[in-house]
Design a binder for these strands. Structure first.
Lengths: 251, 251
DNA sequence: AAGTGGTCTAGACCACTAA
DNA sequence: TAGTGGTCTAGACCACTTA
């Protein structure tokens, strides 16, 4: 059992005033306080920190508020919580962060650049091995293949290959995709699908290389996503970004 | 304003029983229920859903419980909430998912493979442009450069380049890194640093290509991380994974 | 059996913002 | 100004796990 011994018994009021510039809520202030004590070494990795009840008394707030703060820290992988045992500072450097994948238009406009979308190619054809696997389709199934291209300020930003399974969703008039990206059409028709993401490094080849205006063989960042509805795969999309592109995320 | 009209006024009790197999909490049941109604098209993208108060009455629970459920949905980007306005089903397909970056040992052992770590190279030298920029160091500063290599079942899994800034942290005896990866040493000495991640596609060159047993020019997935302590960059690490490697995350 | 976190409640007040 | 979500409380009970 760990005994907390504060030099000065900091009350919540004092702390709230201290953090007034940042306008922190009570639970945010508690989260910050706990984080600071972990960073300072007061609570080293692997060590038990005080119970919710103890912290609530110390901070002068309700246990539910402490719970909220510690729950947020646990979901970030900073601490680990177990009933009856208590709360431990995580001993590994494992971290969880949130990756946000916005709509292409938003992504480009957030950079302050001009967005342009173009349909490159559209056809009904049999699936490649990857597409068949992702869509759980048969080799003789006719699938819709849509290739698109996104420009930012007139230069190639991303190219995309989308496979759609007609057995899983009623396909629109292909002309529709001349104006609207398949992903946006999908999200309008299948709100909140289940999506499985996958990020990998690939090399630009053929149409993809031409579309991105890159020499064949150039490394590109690939983001794959399979949208499913009721466990039935509906679409299999691959987006390719030129090598300058970075997925960035801070804590 | 939207009027909810249930065919059968489902009470929380009934719903809890319905979901008993899944052992859902009240807030999880509410989250599932709201998600189901969005998926079913009852609440299309862009539409306002009932207020917390209305849902609380309908579900027969406290408003705080509804709040918990809706907060979780909002943090996933499924719904958007604004005071005075209400809660809307997100109209874009923007999604947020959690990326978990475990410790290399855990990552490899989670695959059921044998973990092996090796120090490839270690020296004090002046920083490259990238390192200087990341560590906010001067060109004449001597930095510690550590190159390492991770094997899974004896085959190359990842190679890593870590720059450490002696001005920001007291460096250990270099021999220490023969046994312990720099990242793990760091996390033991700087618990819960601020980390900035960046993911990109690069190509294997020189020592990196040899280390991964790949031809020079092969696309590799690069994960960069800059650890900072009190806004002072301490380390700049780049991990390179062969092209088969995928970062996968489901919803 | 006992201790810890997880959830839930009923009510209150606050913060933000459209009207 | 009024309506909505955001937070907080004091207390209760439950779920899980170690002893």
């Amino acid at each position: 059992m760990l005994t907390v011994n504060h030099g000065s018994s900091t009350s919540l009021r004092a702390e709230a005033l201290e953090n007034s510039a940042k306008r922190l809520n009570t639970w945010q202030a508690i989260r910050a306080d706990v984080l600071a004590r972990i960073r300072s070494g007061e609570w080293p990795p692997g060590e038990l920190i005080p119970t919710e009840q103890e912290l609530a008394v110390e901070m002068g707030c309700a246990r539910a508020t402490v719970n909220r703060a510690l729950r947020e820290l646990a979901s970030s992988g900073i601490i680990e919580r177990r009933r009856k045992v208590g709360t431990r500072v995580a001993s590994t450097s494992s971290r969880r962060t949130t990756l946000s994948l916005p709509v292409m238009r938003d992504e480009i406009e957030a950079l302050g650049q001009r967005y342009h979308y173009a349909l490159t190619e559209i056809e009904m054809r049999r699936g490649t091995a990857g597409a068949l696997n992702a869509l759980q389709a048969d080799p003789e199934d006719e699938l819709m293949l849509v290739k698109t291209r996104y420009l930012a300020d007139g230069t190639a930003y991303c190219c995309e290959t989308v496979w759609l399974n007609p057995k899983a969703i009623a396909l629109p008039d292909p002309k529709l995709f001349e104006a609207e990206p398949p992903q946006e059409w999908l999200s309008r028709h299948l709100p909140v699908q289940q999506t499985r993401f996958s990020i990998l490094a690939d090399e630009a080849t053929g149409a993809c290389a031409r579309s991105l205006e890159l020499p064949s063989g150039t490394p590109v960042l690939a983001i794959e996503r399979v949208n499913s509805l009721d466990a039935v795969p509906v679409s299999y999309a691959r987006q390719f970004y030129p090598p300058q592109h970075r997925l960035i995320f801070d804590d």
